[in-house]
Amino acid sequence: MNRWLPFAGVGLLAALAGLSLWLAGNSATSPALAPGPIEASPAAIQAARFTDPAGQGHTLAQFAGKVVVVNFWATWCPPCREEMPAFVRLQGRWGGRGVQFVGLAQDDAGKVKAFARELGVNYPLWLGGAEVMDLSRRLGNRRGMLPHTVLLDAQGRVLESRIGIYAESDLESKLAAVTGK
């Protein structure tokens, strides 16, 4: 019987290796939250035009030189609203260290204004039409899910594209790593 042990060992080895590779492959492909390719160039990101709730025009180019956290959200999206108080706290803690949060929504200006006032949002909340979600898709959000948060470095290059709620501690660690502060 002992002479079969090496074969059994090799068989077990092959099965476990196969399982490991399957797990690795399975977790790295196809999940709905996995961001797709980044199709928007830094120039295109900075050129996109939005308006604030008062109707004044803006582009992300005004934050060139800063690490920018772009948050795609909507007032009708409860998980988006859930994570925003954390963004307010992080803007307060990191604003002086070269970090700027910006919220982008395809939404009603009155609702956005009311929400900003109620929550005490300390960063710009800008609005746009279909181009808001179009930019989100070109930044890796293939399915148009919200919330979607994108980190841009000081040159406007995409450092991260994350779909779903971004935990405050995770984002804070990321900001520390990106800014080196």
């Binding site: 797990l23 399975n26 999940p31 709905a32 996995a34 961001p35 779909i163």
Partner: peptide, 22 residues
């Protein structure tokens, strides 16, 4: 194989069961 399993793109939750549906 283990690092390959961890080396998922940013934005993916920890477990496949946490993934929302298409």
């Amino acid at each position: 194989a283990a690092p390959a399993a961890r080396a998922v793109p940013p934005g993916i939750l920890a477990s496949p069961t946490d993934e929302p549906l298409e």
